[in-house]
Amino acid sequence: MRVEIWSDIACPWCYVGKARFEKALAGFPHRDQVEVVHRSFELDPGRAKGDAAPVLEMLSKKYGLSTEQAQEAENNIAANAGAEGLGYRTEGRDHGNTFDMHRLLHLAKEHGRQDELIGLLYRANFADERSVFDGDAYLVELAVEAGLDADAVRAVLADPGAYADDVRADEREAAELGANGVPFFVLDRAFGVSGAQPAEVFTQALGQAWDAKPRLAAVGGDGEVCGPDGCEVPATGDPA
């Protein structure tokens, strides 16, 4: 069975949703027969490369929030991340263009290192002190840590056309499937799961998709997602 996950490195719910899905997959009896493929979806495709801005500033502009409200939103998402055992830095993070990261993820897919790279990119963006938008050198470091060849990574970054068509193809397919926010999970082209659902919903979806007919059906209602207009903010209180 194949599970395709449309996501963006800039999406906090993709970070949380990946952890919840992996928790469900770890307990799935057929987990050794499940192939996971990460697909590209840019939340801010119009932002120029190198045009990074503080996350709190971005949240304030997108949602019309005060700095205090934006900080509370970050704190609430951090609580959800912490409940999954994930680090989440609520201050000092940047937001920027992720197109090069998606191109590198397609390179990583060819070498069987996609999951390793996306995990490191998430960690760098949401938990580490250094900004993931801190230039190509940092992306090379992360890609090498994921097991890729440094020269191959530099060659991709130096060629804006490398894997660009693959990224655009993923994004077109997301639109064709009706995905207007991420994370979006498609299980064996039989079931679609939208948002950072609880692990129990992914467990249900995996079980149903294993024997499903070839049709796409919604499972679990709507979970929190990030879209071009911003990311949903969880209600104040205990993490979901």
Rank of each mutant, 00 (worst) to 15 (best):
G64H: 05
G64Q: 00
G64Y: 00
G64N: 08
L65R: 02
S66K: 05
S66A: 09
S66Y: 08
S66G: 15
S66T: 15
T67S: 10
T67P: 07
E68R: 12
E68D: 14
E68T: 11
Q69D: 13
Q69A: 14
A70Y: 04
A70N: 08
A70E: 03
Q71I: 01
Q71W: 03
Q71M: 08
Q71N: 04
E72L: 08
E72T: 05
E72D: 15
E72Q: 14
A73P: 01
E74K: 12
E74W: 01
N75P: 00
I77Q: 11
I77C: 09
N80L: 05
A81L: 12
G82E: 13
A83D: 12
A83C: 07
A83M: 05
E84R: 00
E84Q: 11
E84S: 11
E84W: 11
E84A: 10
G85K: 08
G85S: 14
G85C: 10
L86I: 02
G87S: 05
R89K: 15
R89E: 09
T90E: 01
T90N: 00
T90M: 01
E91G: 01
G92A: 06
G92F: 04
R93I: 02
R93T: 13
R93Y: 05
D94M: 15
D94A: 15
H95Y: 08
N97P: 08
N97E: 12
N97W: 06
T98A: 06
F99K: 11
F99H: 14
D100R: 07
D100C: 09
M101Q: 14
H102W: 00
H102N: 07
L105D: 02
L105K: 04
L105H: 03
H106D: 05
H106M: 13
H106Y: 15
L107P: 05
A108P: 08
A108S: 12
A108L: 09
K109D: 07
E110K: 15
H111V: 07
G112F: 11
R113A: 13
R113C: 04
Q114E: 13
Q114C: 04
Q114N: 05
Q114L: 06
D115S: 15
E116L: 06
E116R: 12
E116C: 01
E116S: 09
L117M: 06
L117V: 07
G119A: 09
G119M: 06
G119N: 15
G119E: 09
G119Y: 06
G119D: 14
L121K: 03
L121P: 02
L121V: 03
L121H: 02
Y122E: 01
Y122W: 10
Y122L: 02
R123N: 12
R123G: 12
R123S: 08
A124N: 03
N125F: 12
F126K: 03
F126C: 04
F126E: 01
F126I: 02
A127H: 13
A127R: 11
A127M: 04
D128V: 04
E129I: 10
R130W: 02
R130D: 14
S131R: 03
V132Y: 00
F133C: 13
F133G: 13
F133E: 09
D134P: 04
D134Q: 14
D134T: 11
G135V: 14
D136K: 15
D136P: 09
Y138R: 14
Y138D: 08
L139Y: 12
